[in-house]
Design a protein around this nucleic acid. Structure first.
Lengths: 209, 209, 209, 209
DNA sequence: AGCTAATCGAGACGGTACGTCGAGTCTTACC
DNA sequence: GGTAAGACTCGACGTACCGTCTCGATTAGCT
């Protein structure tokens, strides 16, 4: 829950000074402006001054609470995503079907332009900024992988997956080709591709294979 | 072989205007300076002015031939890499051993700091610039994947891999988790990891699995 | 009094936005640096960057308040001159003596290297920039002529000068040959020349001539 | 006749190397382009590259024959003017009428936009470049003054002007106010003004005044 | 008529300065 | 004390020209 990249605490939380007189109004305006702007002009042309002006806020108010535009964007993006990924994968007993269902939905999401700009920006901003990278992974990437690992482990316990399989590596075999394709634009994220990928990965997981 | 990001032609090539009389001396100095600087200060702090000054060159000479610092870096990086990846993967008849051998070597390479900075920078720059992304993929990423696809197809013809396997998807199952780990810093690229990955992927490829 | 070339108002003046909170420290440093540099390197080699660097100031601070280097120089030069020309010409009753006295002093001034560079520069810059020209004339040239016109008119009222003489034209007959000689370097500004000029001009002004 | 600012000699003249194989075609194109451009964009934005490109000429061809854009312009302007001013002032016996006639014509000329740009530019370029200034004065300004001095001297010999008058100073009293007005834009050059000026100057020149 | 060297159009080159943008810091006035 | 506003220094941007320097390709004058 603790925000690694921004030194803010929600009003009422237990900080050194119980309540920092921070304007919630400004905070929301800044996050909203960030998301709007990154969609309009792209990450490279996203500027602190632009965010401040769009949000009707002084630059200092941004600098006071966030260390960089990436951190702002991460907060903005995370706020929308946090609850979503907390619900886990469905478990109908049919592993292949469950994975295809969810990955197809994810493909739709990744093909949504509104989602692409900020996510790409963050994925990439992390590459040259180890600190931000950690925050991005911890808050967005890792939770996403975790639910797949959990589902695979459940399947393992149900005997649907061989006991000696490293579920973490298996999850990455599923997710990395998918996100790599999208990130590097090496191919389309179609339902066909998703199905092929799931099937091929699962062939290696079956007991006795 | 054609250079997609820089509008230059090697002297003597058949262009509309026969030869643009480009200074090879400057070209080399610029590429060298780019690689040196990206290693020293990182991609974000890499500037055209910095490259120009380090190379002892006017800024215009850079702008004349490249559209962005990313394009310069791509050329610089590619020049060193081109010949390397043209030789294909070994084929001893033992697919697992061959893959492990090469992936281990690649892991070493990715763990080399001199290689990391420019490669990360390019991966990242591509994400926010579709044009550059294509050049990056075509000139660096795709050739790297191709050799794996070729090796897998050879194995398929040798009956070592099931005939119905999509070798392209299989290659990505191998390479994407690997490069994703590195790019996002979600884990170390150890020999153990490589071996585990290769083994798990191959389980799904075997005929009759 | 109003500054035509710079959009600044002295702190405390009544503008739409009460006070623009301009740094007096920077303003002085810029004006001082301009005068110093124009003397050292000449107007052509005077650059905004040079002024900024010498003044220890960002370029933007200059561009924020002045439209061109000529405008800066005009302000710098005017600041030193404003009060000076407000005192009028002496009136001892002897017109010729009074004019010779003042013109000799002016000759000394025009022969002073510290004065030459900026004044020449402004005269020149004005020729190719009508806007600046107006400011130059209004703030430097015109006040200088005015005091002569006033003195001539006083002489006219005293009966020393014919009533039908256009004092403005007469003043120009006195001042233009003088400044033209200096500007075009067609001759030296000696006391002899000044005396000859005054005498010849006055011959035409005497009543009954 | 010798050109002080440009190291060229007309073909056939006696230089070290008797005949320099210079392209007359290029020379004309350069001078024409200069005049055209200075009229279109003004002196400040007149560039060597612009002239070269407009004239369809290599930059080097300009640099080979002229030291600066001012020198080019001076040549271009002089070529058109040289013959004109060689004919002297009319002498009908009525000095005032002769002066008014010619000065009115000159006023018309100075009010012609095509004439203004280059002449102003040259007058002014000289202020910061003593070398050019001398050339400008010698080739354009001085010959213009000379004809007035000659006419005044003739009048002096005819007893129309007092014998003790310095005709040079008198000529400047006539011409400087005129050109100063124009150069500094301190007033219009009307026929009225010309007449007033001539009359007032002549009042001081009459014998016995 | 052929030779040869100066001159030509073209434009790349190392530089300097331009005028603009944004970063991150600081100051002022308001609430 | 947090905030909106915005001036400040600084660094880099991408562009325009500078004056110099090759490149072939004319081309003029001499042999």
């Amino acid at each position: 829950m603790a925000n690694k990249t921004a030194p803010d605490s929600p009003p009422g939380s237990a900080g050194g000074t119980p309540t920092r007189r921070r304007s919630e109004r400004s905070r929301r305006a800044i996050l909203d402006a960030s998301l709007a702007l990154v969609g309009e002009v792209g990450y490279d042309k996203l500027t602190i001054e632009g965010i401040a002006s769009r949000a009707g806020v002084g630059k200092q108010t941004i600098y006071r609470w966030w260390p960089s535009k990436a951190a702002v964007l991460l907060d903005a993006f995370t706020a929308d995503v946090d609850e979503y990924s907390a619900q886990g994968l469905p478990d109908t007993g049919d592993l292949a079907a469950d994975l295809k269902l969810v990955l197809r939905a994810t493909a739709d999401e990744f093909n949504d332009p509104a989602f692409q700009a900020p996510y790409r920006a963050l994925a990439v901003a992390g590459a040259n900024d180890a600190e931000l990278s950690r925050a991005f992974v911890d808050r967005l990437l890792e939770p996403g992988i975790r639910v797949y690992v959990d589902r695979l482990r459940a399947a393992q316990e149900a005997g649907e997956v061989a006991a000696d399989v490293d579920t973490r590596v298996a999850a990455e075999m599923l997710l990395s080709p998918f996100s790599q394709r999208w990130l590097m634009r090496t191919g389309e994220l179609t339902y066909d591709y998703v199905d092929t990928l799931v099937d091929l990965v699962l062939r290696g997981l079956r007991p006795g294979s």
